[in-house]
Amino acid sequence: MTIATLPLQNDDDLPPRRSLSRIVLKRLLTKPAAVFGLVIILLFVAFALVPDLFSPHDPYAQSLIRRLKPPSFLDRGVDGYLLGTDHLGRDTLSRIIHGARTTLLVSLFAVVVSAVVGIWAGLVAGFFGGKTDAVILRLIDMQLAFPVVLLVIAIVAVVGPSLTNLIVLMGLSAWPRFARIVRGSVLSVRGLEYIEAARSIGAGKLRIMLRHILPNILSAIIVYASFELARMILLEATLSFLGLGVQPPTPTWGGMINDGKNYLSISWAVSLFPGVAIALIILAFNLLGDEIRDALDPQLSHD
């Protein structure tokens, strides 16, 4: 997101200052897929930040006479309830808009948790090598070797689905993938001259890792984080669909689909629309990840 918020400067008289993020942003804005992804993401971020600005109704307001209404553009639809209402008469559109906050909050922080743990593990493994590397690699393999989703479900069921628990557990389920990417990147820069140079002027290990290696592998991390966000959104949606996400009445997309599941034959709309939101945001992060990767390295064709 830092890329998107960079101030544009007037570069008429000066030789253009070409920072990598500006070049990447420029390239991204010429790609329809990237623009599509960015627009969707910005829209949902806006929903998450100021839901009341967009939502036509109170997402918690129930009404017995407005239960399970179809979308307003269909027969029997009620004006003002664009996507219909759920089994308690709550406005589906408003609940989707308010649900963006939970999903994005949980997924974003889960990615932060997994990134912090994974980047450290990857840096240490790649930089020190030897036994340290072997131990961390074994840990990574061990966790990757298991259907983590099932474990997350089981553990959430025991410790309870609070916001913090969800973030920590989802984050911890994903660190090995980060660690593997970072370790690989560290190995590819570790032998380069500037690391040697830093070491020869007496830079400490921590300084080399954080000031010299980390900035140089940051682009790989950003690309990966975009894909990982998509994955975490999927996991959050799955957990809340199974009733193990953030608890009702707080609207969550997965929870809304689950609510509608029992009324599919009467009112399919309740389950249909929240899923569109999930698919759109996942698609957006996947597209953006693809495009940032290509923009960072146009020579490589990633087929």
């Binding site: 599941k261 599919l264 399919w268 389950s271 899923g275 698919a279 759109l280 698609l283 996947n286």
Partner: peptide, 21 residues
């Protein structure tokens, strides 16, 4: 791309809506 974006539980619901309902 779509196959990766659509959660399997949602795809299940969709197929139920279309083919069963």
């Amino acid at each position: 791309l779509l196959g990766q974006a659509v959660p399997s539980f949602y795809l299940g619901i969709l197929t139920i809506i279309i083919f069963a309902v």
